[in-house]
Design a protein around this nucleic acid. Structure first.
Lengths: 156, 156
DNA sequence: TCAGTTGCTTGAGGTAATCAAGCATCCATG
DNA sequence: CATGGATGCTTGATTACCTCAAGCAACTGA
């Protein structure tokens, strides 16, 4: 097995390509489940994603844009629509009058929790995983894309 | 009742909630990397996602819609734009004149490969994983969201 | 044959995403 | 102070995305 000459340098037990394919499939399953659970609550996936980020605590428009990897003006629109449905609230930052901190309303908290529990396929898949595997998976993912960034919120 | 998912059930070493959070972070990292690699090629993430699906082989419009979890009319637009850039081609199905099979052009193959190799953060993260962990991760993901569906393409 | 179904496209309407521009505020330097 | 530059948010324009309803063509089975 280690002798097989691969085009790339050091031969690995599992190629990056194979790992990426596996991650792709997982992403598709997880994200599809998330999207459909969000749709059940009348939310687009972008809106639900934003609520999920806010679950960790209030965040400024700027930090939301950074976390969501998109332009700040985009966040304005998403928050506009979420605020129109009273799922979030814009609060002026006490320390910087330019900044608006976005906070989940009680309704927003309820809704994002409903979406999470509504991800049936995901819960089923996770429930089917033996305890040792749960620990292993959590540990692996933790180390894979460790995000040293953002504590709970980074409000302005 | 083993099925009921939560608070009072059997205590797990790692809760579903914690696992979902870990999955979220990982997928966010992966997908963010993918999106930016796609943008480098002038592709939206939807377009790049579609090319990624087609990497496994030709697919009808219908099966693309199913795989991408979206309406068929949406696929029409995405394929229109990809075809205008000569990254894919619509081919009439030999067995069903209603069906159009979408195929990657040589340029499309090149482009999707470029996107994959351009996911630097992902490659770095994966390269940092010891061999045993690579095997474990691949195995875990494989079992987690095993998709018995779709062989390579499901062309009409 | 022909009713029902399926596959794809079009059009309307709203959401998402980017860029450029603008205003208010903050901050550092003079 | 003051003032030039940077930062935070919003608006407007443009394109892409996405869903639904409707339509036509083609397949299917009775």
């Amino acid at each position: 097995m280690p002798g097989t000459s691969r085009p790339t340098g050091v031969s690995k037990a599992v190629s990056n390509a194979a790992l990426m394919d596996a991650i792709w499939d997982s992403l598709a399953g997880f994200y599809g489940d998330f999207t459909s659970a969000a749709a059940d609550e009348g939310l687009t996936s972008s809106q639900a994603k934003t609520l999920t980020v806010l679950r960790r605590g209030p965040a400024s428009m700027r930090s939301l844009a950074t976390t969501l990897h998109c332009d700040a003006s985009n966040v304005t629109g998403i928050i506009d629509r979420l605020e129109a449905r009273a799922l979030v609230r814009r609060e002026p930052s006490p320390t910087d009058r330019r900044v608006k901190n976005v906070v989940l309303t009680d309704d927003g908290v309820r809704t994002v929790e409903t979406v999470r529990t509504g991800m049936l396929a995901t819960h089923t898949a996770l429930d089917g995983l033996p305890d040792a595997d749960r620990v292993a998976l959590h540990d692996l993912l933790q180390r894979l894309f460790a995000t040293p960034e953002r504590g709970p919120g980074t409000p302005g």
